[in-house]
Measured scan of single mutants.
Amino acid sequence: MKGKVVSYLAAKKYGFIQGDDGESYFLHFSELLDKKDEGKLVKGSMVHFDPTPTPKGLAAKAISLPLE
């Protein structure tokens, strides 16, 4: 699924993505496929991810940034 980063707290390594389906997904650095892309996780960045339901809500897994 595609989505847009709505927040990312680099110090805490987490944030949120708004998916194309309108839902909010929890984003964690550990799910970023290329850790070098962390600096690109800023508000408004477009990402691809696997939407995954968890006991705490919806989460983004296997997060990647589109090729530039």
Rank of each mutant, 00 (worst) to 15 (best):
T52N: 10
D37T: 08
F29N: 04
A59D: 03
F29W: 14
K61Y: 09
K56I: 08
G3Q: 00
S7R: 13
D34I: 07
H28T: 08
G19A: 05
S64R: 14
P53Y: 13
E31V: 03
K4E: 08
K13M: 06
G57N: 03
F26E: 03
P53W: 15
Y8E: 01
E23A: 11
A11N: 11
K36M: 11
D50Y: 15
V5G: 00
F49L: 01
L32A: 01
D20K: 05
V6S: 10
Y14E: 05
E23S: 09
K36P: 04
F49M: 02
G44C: 08
K2C: 14
S7P: 00
L27W: 04
L65S: 05
P55M: 09
P51D: 02
K61G: 06
K12W: 10
P66I: 15
A59Q: 13
T52A: 13
K36H: 12
G57F: 04
S24N: 11
K2Q: 11
L67P: 13
E68F: 12
K13V: 02
I17E: 00
H48A: 12
I63Q: 01
Y8A: 03
A10S: 12
G22R: 05
F49G: 00
P53E: 13
H28I: 05
T52S: 13
L41H: 01
G57S: 04
S7E: 08
D34F: 07
K43L: 08
T52H: 14
A11D: 12
E31S: 08
G39F: 13
D37Q: 11
K36R: 13
L65M: 11
K35P: 14
T54R: 06
G57A: 03
K36T: 12
S30W: 08
F29C: 07
A10R: 13
D21V: 02
P53I: 14
K61T: 11
G15S: 01
A59M: 14
S64N: 08
K12G: 06
G57H: 03
D50K: 14
D37M: 10
G3F: 02
L58V: 05
A60P: 01
P55K: 11
D37G: 06
M46H: 11
A62E: 06
K43C: 10
S45N: 10
D34Y: 08
P53Q: 14
S30P: 03
S64G: 08
F29S: 07
K2S: 13
M46N: 09
M46R: 15
D50N: 14
A59W: 14
A11F: 10
Y25W: 02
V47N: 01
M46C: 13
K35E: 09
K61V: 09
T54K: 05
Y14N: 03
L33H: 05
D50R: 13
A62G: 11
K12C: 11
E23F: 14
L58P: 10
K13I: 03
K40A: 07
M46T: 14
H28A: 12
S45Y: 07
L9F: 15
A62Q: 11
G39W: 14
E31A: 12
G44P: 02
V5C: 03
P51Y: 07
I63R: 01
K4V: 14
K13R: 12
S64H: 15
Q18W: 11
L9M: 13
